[in-house]
Amino acid sequence: MTATPSRHPGLNLGRAHQEAHDACEVLVFGFWVFMMSDLIIFGLLFANYVTQLDALAGGPGPGELFEMKSAFLETLLLLTSSFTYGLASYCLKYRHGRGWLTAWLGVTLLLGLAFIGFELHDFHKMAGEGGVPSRSGFLSAFFALVPLHGLHVASACLWMVVLMVQMCVHGLDTGVKTGLVRLGLLWHFLDIVWVGIFSLVYLGGLA
């Protein structure tokens, strides 16, 4: 079969993976659609957060609760993990061997877990200062938006673990490849959402 030019020019597997590439076409498009639906959820939570900015009800506000340092660290972690996931996709696409692929995925997973760890630490600290969701409309809005992102990252980590196990069980077959491409979409997408969060919630709150 002759290699058709890659039909789906975005994130893809490329011609070297003909069968998986074809399967990807529909799966990746479907996943894009799902992410856009998810994007609406985040967008609305952002909007809700903005409307609740002044609903402090006498409770603590952004100035007291947020810390620039940890927000910065989390941002760096997530951004770097996006980059390392990019390198993993790169290794997958150009067949750099399973070793490199697994290594980059492992690094990404560690970064992701570190991100979640720092975030949980943040929430814990906020709670210590009275920043709990039941305190005010503002804090409810915060705890709807930011932990939802964290939950997404956690699910993505779980998915990555599942895919790595699948790689051990089935080898690097079509199912794993298409899974990795979709997970990549999700991972980069979550970083984009985080750009919104650190800009609007943390920097906006501390500015």
Binding site: N48, A55, A57, P133, S134, L139, S140, A141
Partner: peptide
């Protein structure tokens, strides 16, 4: 979340707002 975890999105007190 309002009902189960005592959030305040649409409640009457603590900054909730049913218009949202």
């Amino acid at each position: 979340l309002d009902r189960y975890l005592d959030f305040h999105f649409f409640t009457q007190d603590l900054g909730g707002d049913m218009m949202n």
